[in-house]
Amino acid sequence: MKKFLAAAFFATTALTSAHAADLGRPVYKAAPMVEPYMTWNGFYIGANAGYSWGRDRVAGTRSDIDGFSGGGQIGYNWQWSPNWVFGVEADLQGANIESSFAGINTNVHMWGTVRGRLGYAWNNVLLYGTGGFAYGRNELTLGALSQTRTHTGYTFGGGMEYAFAPNWSAKIEYLYVDLGRETYDAFATTARSDFHTVRAGINYRFGGAPIVASY
C-alpha cells in the first residue's frame, strides 16, 4: 500500500511540474493578415501609338480628317490612399492626321498635351480621367503654296492602366483634342482642327515602383 501511494505521489508531482512548465512558456500568435496593395507613386516614361479622326474647318467648309500618330510621354503620380491617385503627364506625338477638299490639303504633323490625371486604383489596375492643355502644328497646302501654324486648345478623356510587372505598365486611352482656330495669312482664311484619338501605350516606372506593400 505504501509503495502504491508513493508511486501515485510521484506521478502527480511530475504531471504538475510539466503543466507548470507549459504555463511558463511564451505563446506566439501569428500576425494578422493585411491585404497588400500596389503603390503608383513616382516618375515614369513611356511610348504610345494610336489612331485619330475628326474634322477640319477651313474658310467655313468642314472636312473629315483622320490618320495615325505616335510618340512618348513622361509623368508623375501621387497616391494618397490605397485607391486614389493623382498625376500629371505631358506627351508629344509625330502625326499624319490629314484631309483634302476643294484642292486644299490639311495635315496635323505634330501634337501634344499637358494634362492632370485623377484615378481610382484596384491594386495593379488604375482607371482615370484626364484633361488639360493641347497644342499642335497644322499645315495648309494648295498647289505650291503652303503655310504652317501652331494651334493651341484643350483636351479631355480617360483610360485604364494595368501594371503587369514590378516596373512596367500598359494603358489604353481615349482623348478628345480641340486645337482651336488660327489665321493663315497666305490663304486669307482661318483653320481649326478637332479630333478624337484612341491609343495604346506602355510605361516604365523608376525607383522600383510600383511596390507591393501593406497599408
Rank of each mutant, 00 (worst) to 15 (best):
M160Q: 03
G87L: 08
G132W: 00
H196Y: 00
A95E: 04
G46Y: 02
A30P: 02
D22Q: 12
Y162L: 05
Y176D: 01
V27I: 13
A90H: 04
H196C: 03
A144L: 11
Y51D: 02
E35P: 00
W80H: 08
T39Q: 09
A102T: 06
W122S: 09
G132L: 03
R192H: 13
G131W: 07
S99F: 03
A59F: 06
G112C: 10
N77G: 08
L145N: 11
D66R: 07
K29C: 06
F43N: 02
P210C: 04
T39G: 11
Y76H: 10
Y162K: 01
I104Y: 02
G71K: 03
R55K: 15
P210N: 10
T155Y: 01
G71L: 07
S100W: 02
A21P: 04
T150E: 10
S63F: 00
T61V: 14
D64Y: 03
A213E: 14
E173Q: 15
V85L: 10
M160V: 15
G94D: 08
G75M: 04
V34E: 14
I211Y: 09
D91Q: 11
R137G: 12
Y184G: 01
G87Y: 05
S99K: 05
A165Q: 11
G136A: 09
A18D: 14
A7Q: 09
F164G: 06
Y154W: 15
T113I: 07
N107H: 00
T152Y: 11
R25C: 08
A134D: 09
M110E: 15
S100R: 08
S146Y: 10
I45E: 08
N107I: 07
V34A: 13
W80C: 00
L15I: 10
A144F: 05
T152M: 09
L145E: 11
Y44L: 07
S193Q: 13
G131F: 00
L92A: 15
E161R: 06
V58N: 04
N48E: 13
N138E: 14
G103W: 02
A59V: 01
H196A: 04
T113S: 13
R62Q: 12
L179A: 08
F9Q: 14
G42C: 10
G75I: 09
L142D: 13
I211H: 13
F86M: 12
P210M: 07
E161G: 07
H19D: 14
A8L: 11
H151V: 03
R199Q: 15
A90P: 01
G71A: 06
A31C: 07
F101L: 10
P26Q: 01
P82L: 01
G119R: 00
V108I: 09
S100K: 12
T150N: 13
A31Q: 13
G116T: 07
G24D: 15
S193F: 06
W80Y: 13
G60I: 05
G60F: 01
A30I: 08
A188G: 15
G159H: 04
L140W: 00
G201T: 03
F206P: 09
G136I: 05
A188R: 11
L92F: 13
L23W: 02
G87W: 02
R181N: 15
N123D: 15
W111T: 06
V177D: 01
D185E: 13
P210Q: 10
Y44S: 04
T183D: 13
Y215E: 13
E89V: 09
S63N: 15
R57N: 14
W40I: 07
Y128K: 05
L175A: 11
L92N: 01
F68R: 00
G158A: 10
R149F: 07
